[in-house]
Write a protein that binds this DNA or RNA. Structure first.
Lengths: 335, 335
DNA sequence: ATTGTTAATGCAACCGGTTGCAAAAAGATT
DNA sequence: AATCTTTTTGCAACCGGTTGCATTAACAAT
């Protein structure tokens, strides 16, 4: 591997000049810059990552923070898609991607601490947003920059983020059902601390109110996985008026669908379902699930682009809204 | 942040002694070691990651290589689970996890090159195994160490890997069907260059031959996603004798299931299905898919443990076989 | 005590970059 | 030609660790 000294030698300048030329420092004359660039080229020079981080006291890697997953549930393909998007953007930005590690919240917090204090990583992408997240407190306390995927709960204006317009998406889903003649629609969620879920619910509520319809919601807690069958049957029997569900993730929709198909108690009940995330599996379901595509890869990609451009102390709060799109399949029928 | 000089000062030794004490170098006396350790403790000292990498010319991060995904298909939750396992192990080993980036094979190759030559990352975990993979050639050429998840195609004996016994898993799946009275069983795959698929097929074949049964296989190529419906219908009509499928991934099974349920052409045909990977969605299907659980998190975890313990030039080739388990649900019926 | 051996420590250079500041070069002014 | 400005460059220190080798301390043997 060529070092900057090799470059300097070849260009007949000092290493410091080579370094400055490399960074297009205005103090260096055009002539020598060209010489240095040529030398870099011909030696296939690329700066050493660690040396640079050490000298700059700041690495140009971004940290990626996945939600801790308590119950093996959130092996949701969504995150993998997001990761692909991040990976793509970081490739083009010549930036390394570092996964925060750990399997509990405490471990994750510690991991982030290490990444910042020992690894000099100062920019993070947080792949989710939930209320009162200690991770964010930690990041702020460490003086690290971060972009979120999902709308922040606090400091909305100061935090750069990329998100779908989940309120709108929730409205659209609800409106879609209303347009198909449904009046008794239930919103199914998981954990309202997650901002996505919260926002989608808000959107749903707005449409219901605008149409003078009753609001129904049903929590199918993460802990209930993979059971929850009981809960679903119970809800269905207690609410015979419900003709449609909006589920905050396709998986919940799929579970309801399964219960509907397999439980004798609620047999022959025709219930429509619209989910979110357009997971590959919703397509394989029968009937194939109508779902809201939220373009996770794009979310990741944009988030990463923002992350790599984050300046040191500067708190510019870019926001970017990625569109969503209802993918119509067969799980919603007209009343 | 405390540096090693602060530690040295506090322990009244030179930085070199502090460094050696920290690494438990036998040249340092027990007395001073204790003094240094105490100092480290009280200053909450932890070595700077980049400085260490620079001085050692080797970082203690591991690189993670996901398969390139050509058609947005392999957003398989499998990989996310593996990642969780890796993340967990690396946390405990105080090792950073670096994702190789890029969205094409060429980009990935380049990314790996950069990680090694500029980032000094020398240990990788390759999350898949396929025949004639240029990624491996690159890794070898860069003199990097790697662990694979999945049995290597070449250099089986020299390459450390963790895998399920996929031949056995394939056999078990086939035997399971045979035990349920099936004789005409078809093996459905995606891409036989993937070693998992290849091995499972081998296992399947062995059982069929041992039982004097005919071997049938059916390729449902990745490119056909999300279509392939035609292909499935075609296969089913051309092979009326088939009563059961083994699919190399649950998703393929789910797709066949869907076709069976929704196509009038093949209506009323009772076909059993057993899949692999026990994805969350197979449970939500109707009938719930019987599937082979391969414990991806464990695979990732073990692979990471091996990766972090990989010595510099040494080619010890640990192998580790993670058990599998058939999760019996309702998609296989007795003939 | 003196010398020989071995164990324990420190000096100084190095890893590959960056940067403040002084020095040299180039250009402008008288 | 001498002096003053303004550009352009290089010296040397630094980032925070590691390590070969010389040095010193400790101990044993005579």
């Amino acid at each position: 591997m060529a070092t900057i000294k090799d470059v300097a030698k070849l260009a007949k300048v000092s290493p410091s000049t080579a370094s400055r030329a490399m960074h297009d420092n205005p103090a260096i004359s055009q002539k020598t810059k060209l010489r240095v660039w040529k030398a870099m080229e011909s030696l296939h020079y690329a700066p050493d990552f660690n040396a640079q981080s050490l000298a700059n006291k700041r690495s140009n890697a971004v940290g990626v923070i996945l939600p801790v997953d308590h119950h093996e549930i959130f092996t949701n393909p969504f995150f993998l898609k997001v990761l692909r998007g991040i990976s793509e953007a970081c490739y083009h930005a010549q930036t390394m991607v570092n996964l925060a590690t750990g399997s509990s919240q405490a471990e994750l917090l510690n991991s982030i601490d290490i990444m910042v204090t020992q690894g000099m990583i100062r920019r993070f992408i947080v792949l989710y947003s939930e209320k009162d997240d200690p991770i964010l407190t930690k990041l702020r306390q460490l003086n690290a920059q971060y972009v979120m995927i999902g709308k922040p709960y606090q400091l909305v204006n100061e935090t750069p983020y990329v998100d779908n317009d989940n309120i709108l998406a929730g409205s659209d889903a609800a409106q879609f059902l209303v347009d198909h003649g449904h009046q008794n629609i239930c919103f199914v969620y998981n954990d309202l601390k997650k901002m996505v879920q919260n926002d989608r619910m808000l959107g749903y509520q707005r449409v219901m109110m605008d149409n003078g319809l009753l609001i129904n919601s049903f929590e199918l807690p993460a802990k209930e996985y993979p059971g929850g069958r009981q809960l679903i049957v119970q809800y269905l029997t207690q609410h015979p008026e419900i003709t449609a569900f909006i589920t905050v993730d396709d998986m919940l929709g799929l579970r309801i669908q399964q219960v509907l198909k397999s439980s004798t108690v609620v047999e022959n009940r025709d219930v429509s379902i619209i989910g979110f995330n357009n997971s590959v599996f919703s397509e394989a379901a029968h009937p194939a699930l109508t779902s809201v595509e939220i373009f996770p890869r794009r979310l990741g990609n944009e988030a990463a682009k923002i992350a790599v451009s984050l300046q040191n102390e500067e708190h510019l709060s870019t926001k970017l809204i990625v569109p969503h799109q209802i993918i119509e399949r067969h799980s919603v029928v007209t009343m």
